[in-house]
Amino acid sequence: MSGTPRHHATPRDRRRSRRPGALAALGACAAAAVVFGAPLPASAADPPTEFTLYAKELPADESDGSSESTDRPEVGDTFAFADDLYRVKDGPVVGRDGVSCVVVRASGSGGDMHCAGTLVLNGGPGGQIAAQGLTQFDMTDSAMSGYDIAVTGGTGDFKDARGYIRVTDEGDGYQKMDFRLTGR
């Protein structure tokens, strides 16, 4: 996501590297796809661990003077974003995430995007959680419906994490992420 580009970017490439305007809000929700928190049970036989975190998107770097595209998304359009993670809104930051998404189906003002991300928890428990999912979007609908994202693994204290994250928009710049995890 950072570093030197592999080729000279065309205007089309630049548009694709930006979040489509209406997808920006959905992208923040996809951040939920990659959040972590409480300790996991010692074995898969233990009941699932449930906890909640909140994600707040970091401002995009618009230092090149361009703005987000408001064009309808097309298959292949990509974007990336990062969030700070909190146990309580406006509390201390407990972690961070990075998410990248690609539009895989587009029809009219909606479609599907596949997002994959990694969350990093600071302190104990510590480690990373990997998550991914396919999410529907509708650029004409300002209200986001809740959705589930699969937890596919992790490192450190989350080395065998499995489960899902239920993501909902809190309407105040935060996305609520309810975790249900098993494994260690």
Rank of each mutant, 00 (worst) to 15 (best):
D172H: 04
T152C: 04
G154T: 01
D71V: 02
S2N: 15
G111C: 14
R18P: 00
L119R: 11
G117N: 08
F51G: 01
Q175D: 08
D169C: 09
P48L: 00
S142D: 13
D112M: 08
K89V: 10
D84G: 09
S17M: 15
R87F: 06
T168G: 05
K89G: 11
V35P: 02
G154N: 01
H8W: 00
V99Q: 12
A45P: 01
G111N: 13
M139V: 08
F179T: 09
F158Q: 07
S109G: 13
A55C: 04
C101P: 01
E57W: 05
A45V: 00
M1E: 11
A55P: 00
E57Y: 08
S109C: 08
E50P: 06
F79D: 06
A22L: 12
G98F: 13
A55I: 06
T49V: 15
A130Y: 00
S100Y: 08
D169R: 10
R19D: 01
R14K: 13
P39N: 12
M1R: 15
V167P: 03
R184A: 05
D178E: 12
S145G: 15
K56Q: 14
G110N: 04
A22W: 13
F179K: 00
Y54L: 04
L134N: 14
A31F: 02
R180W: 03
M144F: 10
R12L: 14
A32Q: 09
